[in-house]
Write a protein that binds this DNA or RNA. Structure first.
Length: 206
DNA sequence: CTTCCGATTGAA
DNA sequence: TCAATCGGAAGG
């Protein structure tokens, strides 16, 4: 019997320490990292993060801008947890909580390049299936039950660092990352707190 | 309690 | 340009 060994090169995890910095620092650093979704049966769907936005204290667009509520409470806690909310009663959005406890902030994951590309009977182009915060949550079956969870193996979601190849590319080529203003906001529209990988076809919008 | 609204998406 | 659809936040 011929059997081939399959070597899974798993990158180091993105740890709470790494995430315990300003959201505006973490957001660009998450580009190229992999979001892993593991289901109850052990199966996984992975996606490389290609677009992010930062939300910080003093930012009128931040859900924690006014006060601490039941919904945004997790943003006031330590870095490394999920913050999922429902938008327009239709879509869910996934955030990674950042910075020190007491500094409510988070990074919105806006788009993923799924691997392998989904083979759905979908009218959508495969590389666009997770091209948007609502779409990626739909693709990875993320809902309100996934808020306030630690991002670590054993949980439904966790983060892995960039591959050495991508790390080199991003570190070497200053044109590989684009920084612009955020999308869909009614407040804080001028803050340049959105980042995306220039080469990605999964970016929600340019 | 009532009213209003949104860090979206895709169809018209 | 605009509706869908609902949890949460604000106001009375």
């Amino acid at each position: 019997m011929t059997q081939r060994e399959v070597f899974v090169t798993q990158q180091p995890l993105v740890t709470p320490e790494c995430l315990s910095r300003a959201a505006t620092q973490v957001a660009p650093d998450l580009l190229g990292c992999t979001l892993v979704r593991q289901f109850a049966d052990g199966s996984q769907v992975r996606g490389v993060i290609v677009e992010t936005e930062a939300y910080e204290p003093g930012d009128p667009a931040c859900h924690a801008y006014r006060r601490k509520t039941n919904r945004n409470a997790v943003m006031f806690g330590p870095a490394g947890k999920t913050y999922v909310y429902l938008i327009y009663g239709v879509y869910h959005c996934l955030n990674v909580v950042t910075d020190l406890a007491g500094i409510p902030s988070a990074v919105l994951i806006r788009a993923l390049e799924l691997s392998p590309a989904p083979t759905l009977r979908d009218r959508e182009k495969p590389h666009r299936v997770a091209a948007g915060p609502g779409k990626l949550c739909r693709a990875l079956q993320i809902d309100l039950s996934h808020t306030n969870l630690w991002l670590q193996p054993g949980q439904p979601l966790w983060l892995e660092q960039r591959s050495p190849t991508l790390e080199t590319e991003i570190a070497t080529n200053s044109n590989s990352v684009i920084q612009t203003t955020r999308i869909g906001l009614t407040q804080g529209v001028d803050l340049p707190w959105r980042w995306y990988l220039a080469d990605s076809q999964a970016v929600s919008r340019r």
